[in-house]
Amino acid sequence: MSKSKKIILYTLLVLIAIVNVFPFYWMLSISLQPLKAVYAYPPQFYPKHPTLDNYRQIFVKYNFFRFTINSLFIATIAALGQLFTCSIAGFAFARMKFRGKELLFGLILATIMVPLEVVIIPEFLLMGKLGWINTYLPMIVPSFLIGTTGVFLMRSFYENVPKELEEAAVVDGASPFMIYWRIFIPVSRASLSALFIISFLINWNAFLRPLIYLNSKKLYTLTLGLISFVGEFSALWNFLLAGAVVSVVPIFTVYLLMQRQFIEGITSTGVKG
């Protein structure tokens, strides 16, 4: 590549990077300033007198630590559940014969694109009937059990597992569950971790369900904590953006540590949800 081309390319890349990174920088910068400086005009591009006071205040007034734990718990359980549900169903759809297989799989595929908003009302009434409002269950159970993309992904993966692997186990007298558990799970580790990370991300950032199902502050997830923070302190932008920073840090850490899985997750699932 010629030098001038390289310069153009890098300029473009940097310009785009600025648009992508600036909001995060701005979030951080404002979160380190007292309110007076935040509302100063013209705006200050960097904190002249940085302070951690906003963070201290929001941790005193608002239990962001608890919210983080809640989000972590919900997202982990839901994602683990989805792994199990999707892989075992994917295994059955790929390697077993049973009546109605095509129909059931078709139904799963058909609902792949239904937005949550369409089913949320009956779901809400169902959760009410079950007495699950203001518990974690509405955030966990549906995500645990619905993995349309996951089933699709695992089925296509398991269809391509060589027959010999399975046959060797059958000779040893292994039951189908043992075959699934001892052979198919280990060979699909990469797909599973990709699926896990995507499902974790979706549940971590979920908003509508926590919004309508959670009332007690001690159960709040980070997203809900942040939005109710807006309701309470919406003029105190230094607090708000400190809250935003706190909500972003954990997932960024996970992302930086597991970049490869994120990318695999997206390329293999393709679909969100």
Binding site: L125, M127, K129, G131, I133, I212, N215
Partner: peptide, 10 residues
């Protein structure tokens, strides 16, 4: 939230 709780009788 209050109305939601009313709907579910809680």
């Amino acid at each position: 939230k209050l109305a939601a709780m009313a709907a579910t009788k809680q």
